[in-house]
Design a protein around this nucleic acid. Sequence first.
DNA 1: GTAAGCCCTGTACCTAGGTATAGAGTCAAG
DNA 2: CTTGACTCTATACCTAGGTACAGGGCTTAC
Lengths: 136, 136
Amino acid sequence: MDSLTISEVAKQAGINLQTIRYYERQGLLAPSSRTEAGYRIFSSESVWRIRFIKRAQGLGFSLKEIKDLLFLRIDAHTTQADIRKRTQAKIADVEQKIRHLQAIHTSLLRMAQDCSGCGPLKNCPILESLDGKEFV
Amino acid sequence: MDSLTISEVAKQAGINLQTIRYYERQGLLAPSSRTEAGYRIFSSESVWRIRFIKRAQGLGFSLKEIKDLLFLRIDAHTTQADIRKRTQAKIADVEQKIRHLQAIHTSLLRMAQDCSGCGPLKNCPILESLDGKEFV
DNA sequence: GTAAGCCCTGTACCTAGGTATAGAGTCAAG
DNA sequence: CTTGACTCTATACCTAGGTACAGGGCTTAC
């Protein structure tokens, strides 16, 4: 009752069947065994693992980083501190992305504020900004 | 003196030569003419246009959106209001991305704070979060 | 025993924004 | 008149994260 076919896993995890095979190729997931005919057999743990992957992706981890996390987890020498360190690196990463987007946001806002929304196009301050006449 | 070869444009705009041909294929840029031998001839305006593209990219516009902006600009019926509207749509887009990253940031921070950084791995609150036992 | 509905592998395709390579033609200097 | 630097097109390759399809093999119910 704990042995699932690939389509059952896909359905339970809410994921495309092809994606499961893709994760297997990427080394993120493996069937616990195969039938004589070569059919993949998964345990319900695989469903958890896919959910883990999806949550971590949602938090901005790449598949490669997630794979690292999974292997860290399996490694007997890994400590909570290791996992915490990865998480803190990812926090710094996300903070960096936010700062970048905020700089973009500021520039766009300034451009839109400078523009009255009327007047001839050739005097459009937004396009002038993009032309680099006064914008860094 | 206003007619440049592709490699001169590439050098002046600080961009890869192949990228210029790529932009041409994408309809973002075109040589003003060709020599008899088929060599592209650019005007120095192309250098400005590439800078425009690079600035707009830096502000989070995709090449497709930039192409739209360029065509808007050429269209005689376009007004400042049209350009302003695009810019405001992009502002909303950037704000959305910032909100998403901030939600990620909050979750990651909470996970890291819950984790003392010591203790056995099997009790790691970060991994528990990712396992979905208490985390949305 | 056969048809539907699974499953397998391998390969190609997709977006986005390029970069690289192959094979051929052109141009200018010595 | 040849050599090296430049250009052309076409095609392949790259990351990231998948998705789709072709051609075949199981399995199960009728």
